[in-house]
Design a protein around this nucleic acid. Sequence first.
DNA 1: CAGGATCCAATTGGATACTG
DNA 2: CAGTATCCAATTGGATCCTG
Lengths: 98, 98
Amino acid sequence: MGHDTRTREILRAVSRQAGWEILLALRQGPTRFSELEEGTQVSPRTLSERLRELVELGLVGRRAFAEVPPRVEYTLTPLGLKLLEALEGLESLLEEHA
Amino acid sequence: MGHDTRTREILRAVSRQAGWEILLALRQGPTRFSELEEGTQVSPRTLSERLRELVELGLVGRRAFAEVPPRVEYTLTPLGLKLLEALEGLESLLEEHA
DNA sequence: CAGGATCCAATTGGATACTG
DNA sequence: CAGTATCCAATTGGATCCTG
């Protein structure tokens, strides 16, 4: 384990269940838990776990509103956006080479 | 599931056990199975599985020599090298932002 | 609505022993 | 040497039900 641990954690999170889909969805703007649930077709258990990871890694922001019923919005952080763009760059690099 | 499946498989493979370490080791030049085993500290089971994936994905090349005892050398393909470089670029992008 | 808790199934990976 | 086979432990994720 070296200084690259963080990068690997990020790659791991993104490549795991619903990771990539969440980032794509959030690029459209702030998104609620239930919207992500529909969009990603993933179980609440997994969705909440993945979101927690992504928030912890600084890729996703979480904002809770004191309302009834409760509302929580997830957003892409600037870092999350950069990552997503970098990954898409990587994607086209791989496509050329296919 | 869309056209990005391949990219995700690649990210997944690299972020899994010994994935990244294999690519790093291979950049030094052709490497044998046993050398990778020592270098990555991973079980033969996992190492062989990961290598098979990476070969299948086109990131790693495999060359077997008809010798006794047998010799097999793994190398980085041009695509593997590009990927590694891209990932390192991503790494420094993430570090700035840490 | 946004999750947490629980139980279970599938996947992943280690340890060890074995073979072409 | 370069793996494969087997058995087992740990991790991951789905389904379902529950709650602040």
